[in-house]
Amino acid sequence: MTVRPEYDELTIGVVALQGSFAKHAFAMGKLGIKSRAVREPGDLKLIDALILPGGESTTMTLLLEEEGLWEPMNEVLETMPVFGTCAGAILLGQQVDDERVRCFNKIDYKAERNAYGRQIESFSTSLVIPSIIDHDFHAIFIRAPKFREIKPSVMSLAVFGADPVLMRQDNVLVASFHPELTEDSGIHKYFVDEIVLNSR
């Protein structure tokens, strides 16, 4: 994989309150890109883009509010590129079927938590993502959400069955699966090359 010289100037923030944040930081490291754990409002000033990892969306909502991160994050996300996986994708949507989860309303859909069922229904599969990666992507779905009432403003980049599982709306990229859990950094690279660098 080629390391682009522009990568040196980038710092990708990873919200590190709970969940698979270390795996996202590792994926960025593999691309030769610096990452920074975001746990306090001040951290938001030191980053070029943000990743909202997988984890439990109820726990994350609580910690985001408790730490005074929710409002400042909502503000920077007006312009800052963001990549959300699973719980992260839920938080970035307009609404979710659980009042304890507070959404940032940055991408136009409604999320349904654990839509495939409990852990016993979790699975992995091969996805074709033609516009991004020239090979099949091994995708791991853990108690994954589904998305409803997806507006035309949202571009679907990959589907599983009839459901969009990788989507983009302007500077917002979301996956209902976990690209951070596999060795393949292709989707992380797409986020940086096509969204983060293009927005500068």
Binding site: F21, A22, G54
Partner: peptide
């Protein structure tokens, strides 16, 4: 291995939690 990564995957999502 595919089943095993789905099993450990949930544990990954619980990290940093209680």
């Amino acid at each position: 291995n595919e089943l095993f990564e789905v099993k450990t995957g949930l544990a990954e999502m619980l990290k940093g939690g209680v």
